[in-house]
């Protein structure tokens, strides 16, 4: 055990940080894009009936393909990984933003309109807060997927915890596999828990009692 940390400790820490950076950067960018697209789509129900099934089909493309194809065009740079992961992160959040906004019941919108709120005010002060738990649910799904797909960065030689798993699998070195697998599992689980806490926090105060 000690031997292992003496030999690989630094590499492991670099790998964990690289992995986290890939995940955080691509999920944050993906979140922003998905939020904006989701809001736009919820304003155009007719168009979204066409676009949403397409998104579901796109979602069946495994992350490895995005990374692979972008790799052929952009080459071996970290941007390749970040763009591929960002595209992948967009889908679940976009879907949940859209459904979350549509599920806001008409009464709330009417009430807000009756209070004299402008459409923008209704969006930011009524619809988005009410849809936020669903949106955060999408964020959780995206984050966990992305931790999983970020392992593939090492497939095109770009580091992260995949390096350990990858080399371990191809050289049959069990210690290396475990050294990569356990931290990546821990990252996924702890980010998941963190987002769960966040989701509870964002439920609007007036609704919290109903939810329990």
């Amino acid at each position: 055990m000690m031997d292992f940390f003496m030999k690989y400790g630094n590499k492991l820490i670099t790998a964990i940080i690289t992995h986290l950076v890939y995940v955080l950067v691509s999920v944050s960018i993906g979140f922003l894009i998905a939020l904006i697209l989701g809001i736009l789509l919820s304003r155009m129900p007719k168009l979204s009936k066409l676009i949403l099934p397409l998104i579901s089909v796109f979602q069946t493309i495994p992350g490895i393909v995005f990374i692979g194809i972008l790799f052929l065009y952009l080459g071996m740079i970290p941007t390749t990984v970040v763009i591929a992961l960002t595209i992948y992160a967009v889908f679940p959040i976009l879907k949940n933003t859209y459904t979350g906004l549509l599920e806001v019941s008409e009464e709330y919108r009417d009430a807000a309109k009756g209070c004299g709120m402008s459409p923008i005010q209704i969006l930011f002060r009524v619809e988005l807060p009410l849809a936020l738990p669903t949106i955060i649910g999408g964020l959780r799904m995206s984050t966990i997927y992305i931790v999983s797909w970020a392992v593939l960065a090492s497939m095109i030689g770009l580091g992260g915890l995949g390096d350990f798993i990858y080399i371990g699998v191809s050289t049959n070195n069990n210690t290396l596999i475990i050294a990569g697998a356990i931290p990546s599992a821990l990252i996924a689980v702890s980010l998941g828990l963190l987002i769960d806490v966040l989701r509870k926090r964002v439920i609007p105060k007036g609704l919290r009692r109903d939810m329990l």
Binding site: I144, S148, L161, G168, V169, I178, G180, A188
Partner: peptide, 21 residues
């Protein structure tokens, strides 16, 4: 829920340690 949270490749790696490729 925990099982699905673990990255797929990590899960497969751990199982591979036990059952081989």
């Amino acid at each position: 829920d925990l099982l699905q949270t673990i990255p797929a490749l990590a899960l497969l790696g751990i199982i591979m340690v036990l059952f081989g490729a």
